[in-house]
Design a protein around this nucleic acid. Structure first.
Lengths: 194, 194
DNA sequence: TGCTGTCAATACGCGCACGTATGGATCGGG
DNA sequence: CCCGATCCATACGTGCGCGTATTGACAGCA
């Protein structure tokens, strides 16, 4: 006993590495990677730079840690308990509908898409995107598509997902009512799942 | 007579506003909006800042002019002589195939997608995206789709286009051979055009 | 109670890119 | 030929954000 985690309820307690990482991910989700500044984040957490440079070597180090933490958790957020659905088509449809809902993880992914020139971000996004397209490809294979077609369809579906993020989150283009939005998602599902 | 345009062949001649705009668009296409720095662009054009601040009030002014110029020309680049194709489906297929080819205009569009938080870029991208989706919607209507379906399909097709840009241009994800790339484009066309 | 390790505050230096100030070069018309 | 307008070079000032250096506060433990 005696070891309190205390990463929750950060009311006037000392900060941990995890607190800084979470704060960084919050800022990235809200304002993008460019807005992740040391002093701004420190203000947000109620301290000054002096604290930051005790926990991290520099800004890059924080970014690396935060994104590493994100990479380890982003998968579970969407795929939680998805394997309980047996029918392949229904499972894929469920994935589509889940993805359509706004999640913090998606905002971060969209923010990272905008800084792919950054040497830390590029390989990470390569891995994540690769895994996700792999998942889609296997899903289409389970439906019964021939391999080549499955790969192409997976690529198309994932491209549609990325465009969806841009149009909604950043461009604010939809201007759709709630019901019309659902109708759109349904249209996508039926168009992309044979 | 007597009035030489001389915007071509910029061998040791004075620079015009159009030269700066084109240079700016080149830099944006190659390295993104963030890399558009006054002194860097001046070096690229073989002069110094002193020249720049004679032609423009500041960096923002250049960005505004350059993007305005781009907005007026980007449409023609893809749709040139597309109305010569009568059959609606064939015309749409032709648009898909043209778009699949890398063009400078697409690189600029992709670069602008990454700075949608910029107050100059956001409304411009809103207009351009709106027009393009409008075009797609009407194309699907001409095919015979009911209005709601046409709107949804246009949105899906354009989202796929945006994702396509990200996956190829910036993420470098495709790793496809030339023929496999063509097969993918063909798959997209047949999937998205009934 | 004093010591030590942990976390934070303050002050400072530095690099970069923007923007300004001012003087120099070059071209065309009277 | 020369003068004003146009175009460019050089030098400087400034703000911002990173990173460093130094000191301070506060816990647990002997």
């Amino acid at each position: 006993m005696g070891v309190m985690q205390q990463t929750q309820k950060s009311e006037r307690t000392r900060l941990t590495v995890g607190d800084w990482e979470q704060g960084a991910l919050d800022m990235i989700a809200e304002q993008g990677v460019g807005a992740l500044a040391v002093e701004a984040l420190a203000r947000r957490l109620g301290v000054t730079k002096g604290s930051f440079y005790w926990h991290f070597r520099n800004r890059e180090s924080l970014l690396r840690s935060a994104l590493e933490s994100w990479e380890q958790n982003e998968e579970a957020e969407v795929l939680a308990g998805i394997e309980s659905i047996d029918e392949p088509r229904a499972r894929l449809r469920e994935v589509f509908h889940r993805v359509a809902h706004e999640m913090k993880s998606h905002r971060i992914y969209a923010a990272l898409l905008k800084v792919l020139d950054h040497p830390v971000v590029l390989p990470l996004m390569g891995r994540v995107t690769q895994r996700r397209m792999q998942f889609l490809t296997e899903a289409y294979l389970q439906i019964g598509m021939p391999p080549r077609t499955a790969a192409h369809r997976a690529r198309l579906a994932y491209a549609a997902f990325i465009g969806f993020l841009q149009l909604n989150l950043t461009l604010g283009m939809p201007r759709l009512s709630h019901e019309e939005f659902d109708a759109y998602v349904e249209h996508v599902a039926t168009t992309l799942i044979p």
